[in-house]
């Protein structure tokens, strides 16, 4: 049973949604004020939303269990996907540590390498030109200051 749930994408996602809804409902119950001076209390609306989410999650889970032909888990090309997510998060932190131009050039070179770009001219020209162009476009034309 548990194995089947973990192998079907609707079962697994329905279960995760259901757990999320229960956690959200409990958090709303405990942490949000339920005192209503007028109308409904601040916790009413979020709780209602979590009930809807939980109901849909449970329905998705039940549909998945009842269905004879299981839905395969989605395809994940984990290595490039996780590297990309890591690069994006790293870019966000590097932006804070350095500045827009340096962080963008470093990020773009790394990302292009992950995507298989190997031409040295492209690896140098594209990040440098793009970063400078965006920086000056934003700061001069749009008057938006970048770090």
């Amino acid at each position: 049973m548990v194995k089947n749930i973990l192998r079907d994408k609707d079962c697994l996602s329905g279960l995760v949604v259901l757990i999320f809804a229960i956690a959200g409902y409990v958090y709303s119950e405990v942490k949000i004020s339920s005192v209503a001076t007028v109308g409904v209390a601040p916790d009413f609306y979020p709780k209602l939303l979590f009930i809807v989410i939980g109901g849909c999650g449970a329905a998705t889970l039940i549909q998945g269990i009842r269905r004879e032909q299981k839905k395969n888990m989605p395809y994940f090309n984990w290595k490039p996907v996780l590297t990309t997510i890591g690069l994006l998060v790293g870019y966000a932190y590097l932006l804070q540590l350095t500045n827009f131009i340096i962080s963008s050039i470093v990020f773009m070179v790394a990302f292009m390498l992950v995507l298989g770009e190997r031409k040295p001219l492209n690896l140098i020209s594209v990040p440098v030109v793009t970063s400078l162009l965006i920086y000056f476009l934003f700061s001069k034309a749009f008057m938006i200051m970048l770090p």
């Binding site: 990020f107 773009m108 990302f111 995507l115 492209n122 594209v126 793009t130």
Partner: peptide, 10 residues
């Protein structure tokens, strides 16, 4: 896409 995706991300 090797060029387009990094540009979009930036």
């Amino acid at each position: 896409w090797q060029i387009m995706l990094p540009v979009i991300a930036v």
